[in-house]
Amino acid sequence: MKNKSLVSITDYSKDEYLRIISIAGEFEKQPVQPIMQGKVVANLFFEPSTRTRLSFESAVNRLGGRVIGFSDTLSSSVTKGETLYDTIKIVSSYCDLIVMRHPLEGSARFASELTTVPVINAGDGANQHPTQTLLDLYSIYKTQGTLENLTVFIVGDLKYGRTVHSLLMALSQFKTTFHFISPDELKIPDEYKFYLHRLGLDYHERKELAVDVEKADIIYMTRVQKERFSDPIEYEKTKNAYVLKNKMLARTKDNLKVLHPLPRVSEIEQDVDMNPKAYYFEQARNGVYVRQAIMTSILGLK
């Protein structure tokens, strides 16, 4: 994995997912390890994403490395019309690793082909956000003790949600049984169903959140956004059907955990937060350990 960019979740194999999970576990036990001393990470945020940026910065700081970069394009040369090509060419001579977030899809792949400095994609438009997926995998592994043969419910916007598609691609390596729960307008695209079918994996698709919930090991909630609906009346009618309430968790398995990539809007009621099955805030904390693992692995330090 040394010097290998992480642009899409499919850039890594199953073994590499497990390796990152194992290294992240070491960092969780001992988060402060000054093994990145003398290393410079360029955090290039062409669009703001405070949580992701802080998570990377925290990870670098705990490892003793330094961060350079920008967090919006208003104050940077990008506003002056500099191409991504030029920015990457120049920044490459300043750093050992590039972390980039960019509103255009495919930008991170393009950047990774312009430089010998490894690139970590921290989100390229609606396309990929692989460090989110790896922290989801770590959270699932940590709470379930395994990634194999789990039953995973994915709820909400399954059509446009990039975290959903990446998580599906990654989990499909572990014989997961999927339950896809969404309104008709936001159903999982056919190409993903064909993909699961080719792998011989079992999946279920329906509109009702409360059905079969006692089978779930993981419930992965996502936001249902108003702008995804062609008909605003349809949105008003459906939004309440995809809200998780504490009483729905009454008959669920003891090992069940509820995950959400955050930020949430109204899709998980606050009374769920007190339930020990709610895991989304811990999930966010896991992001730092996972990013420590990804960076040190790519730099050949782990």
Partner: peptide
Amino acid sequence: ITNNEKIVTKFQVISKTEVQLRCHYCE
């Protein structure tokens, strides 16, 4: 990105009967 910056496009052909191209960049 290929529609916004000067880049030679690249596609993997995922279906040949009814042609489907997957963009190497945005997927």
